[in-house]
């Protein structure tokens, strides 16, 4: 009986030790899991805080910019009120910018070029119909040569060519500034008459090639040409002016 009791006691002691160890391990694990959960929440909070600070910094910057622009506006208004030279200068500057953008009709000396399809019959000695009609690339080449010769304003059938103008071909028609035009084409060009004439009449130039194929080309210098403004103003959705402090 005594040995049985002793044995049983021994058993309980070892069981107690085992349970102590197991309890300790459970404690470690529960503690660790809790800490882990806390740090994950902490990490998320940290990310949110950094984003908030960033946004706040941006807001501050923008408010500064607003202040600066308001100051500038006030300055301009003051200048306008006191009718100093600045207004005149700025109006001039604005006028130049508007001409460059094609927002104003302009007049001046230059040349008028009239182009029509070839009088030769399709399927003639040079090939099919494609050869005898004016293509978008013909106009592009002519416009390029005109710009190179110092043209200041060009219009094709009333469509003003500006810096963003595209001359494209769409289903046998030609589009300028996304507006469909068809022949005969009239180009009005303002610039130095002599330079423009010689640029167009250059040997093996665009007009030379067209004349060989008997296109109807009529080029005449004029003393006063009016070039119309662009019908659709350009919008800048993506391009932003680079501020000085942003330059890297």
């Amino acid at each position: 009986m005594a040995t049985l009791l002793a044995q049983r006691k021994h058993w309980i002691i070892s069981m107690t030790v085992v349970c102590l160890v197991l309890g300790g391990l459970l404690g470690v694990q529960v503690h660790t899991q809790q800490v882990r959960g806390l740090t994950e929440v902490g990490r998320q909070t940290g990310a949110l805080i950094s984003r908030l600070t960033e946004a706040e910094a941006q807001l501050d910057k923008q408010q500064e910019e607003i202040e600066r622009l308001r100051g500038l506006q006030a300055e301009y208004e003051q200048e306008a009120a006191s009718e100093k030279g600045l207004v005149r200068l700025m109006t001039e500057e604005l006028g130049n910018a508007r001409i460059a953008l094609g927002l104003l009709p302009v007049k001046g000396p230059g040349v008028v070029l009239e182009l029509a399809d070839s009088t030769m019959m399709a399927g003639g000695e040079f090939g099919g119909q494609d050869v005898y009609v004016i293509h978008d690339f013909d106009l592009v080449q002519i416009a390029n040569e005109l710009w190179a010769a110092g043209a200041e304003a060009i219009s094709i059938n009333g469509q003003r060519l500006v810096s963003g103008s595209a001359i494209t071909c769409s289903a046998r028609l030609i589009k300028v500034n996304d507006v469909t035009i068809s022949g005969p084409f009239t180009l009005k060009v303002i610039g130095n008459k002599k330079n423009l004439m010689s640029a167009l009449n250059i040997r093996d130039g665009a007009l030379d090639r067209l004349r060989v194929l008997q296109f109807q080309v009529k080029l005449m210098p004029e003393d006063e040409i009016v070039v119309p403004p662009i019908s659709v103003g350009s919008r800048y959705e993506y391009a932003q002016p680079l501020q000085k402090e942003e330059k890297q």
Binding site: T16, G23, G24
Partner: peptide
């Protein structure tokens, strides 16, 4: 053994 389990858990 049961109390040992609890004590071990709490201690750690």
């Amino acid at each position: 053994p049961l109390s040992a389990l609890i004590v071990g858990f709490l201690a750690v």
